[in-house]
């Protein structure tokens, strides 16, 4: 009896989250470390709320805890799309403190950063499973997109049937190749941008409204 009631409750809860118009969709910004996820999150948050989400850095794994910016209202064509943005730690299969030693970091700090980054990946993967309604997948277009992390994450996202917007970031850099990313994920549309410079953000917002609205 209790089980039935529980079941009924959870079904109605699930239904209400699925069909409720008021609840903003929670959009996770995912991608490998240093792809520009936080820069993008800050760009979106600043453009539409005036606030930032978190500090950006050239050193990988600056974001080691998922950060959320709620009720970001994006206006497109007279309509408003409200989303919660979750900036997640960069996902990777290996974290090595020695990588941080190159950035003038003491060993103790590097080891701690490494441990926190690992916890951050665990958190990001957990959020992907439990808590996001859509994904903005950010890739550094100067890097080779054919990596285990990208393949696996995109695969997971696809298996979840989550709407995913693939962004080719850092197009302001000379080595950028958007086509390489298009080739890597031909089943998805790729939108180029520079989150740092704000290049092509209009199209990004169009896509966000289209995918997550």
């Amino acid at each position: 009896m209790g089980l039935l009631t529980n079941l009924k409750d959870s079904i109605s809860r699930a239904a209400s989250t699925l069909f409720s118009e008021e609840d903003p969709k929670r959009i996770g910004i995912y991608g490998p470390p240093n792809a520009g996820k936080t820069t993008l999150a800050n760009r979106i948050a600043r453009d539409w709320t005036g606030d930032a989400v978190g500090p950006e850095s050239h050193i990988p794994h600056e974001t080691r805890r998922a950060r959320r910016k709620e009720n970001v209202e994006i206006e497109r064509d007279g309509k408003t799309v409200t989303i919660d943005i979750v900036d997640t730690p960069g996902v990777t299969t290996k974290v090595d403190y020695t990588e941080f030693l190159d950035h003038d970091m003491e060993k103790d700090d590097a080891v701690r950063r490494s441990r926190e980054a690992t916890e951050g990946v665990a958190e990001a993967m957990h959020w992907l499973r439990e808590d996001v309604d859509g994904v903005i997948y950010v890739l550094d277009s100067t890097e080779d997109p054919f990596t285990q992390v990208n393949t696996m994450l995109i695969g997971i996202i696809e298996s979840q049937d989550l709407p995913v917007l693939i962004l080719a970031n850092k197009i302001d850099l000379e080595e950028s190749s958007v086509q390489r990313i298009r080739n890597a994920f031909p089943q998805h549309e790729t939108t180029p941008l520079s989150a740092l410079e704000g290049d092509n953000m209009d199209e990004v917002y169009d896509k966000i409204a289209e995918y997550f609205g």
């Binding site: 080891v111 993967m125 992390v149």
Partner: peptide
Amino acid sequence: PGQYELNLMELYDRE
């Protein structure tokens, strides 16, 4: 300490 290898599928699969 400070060097980790992560199994993303495991992390994802675990409740």
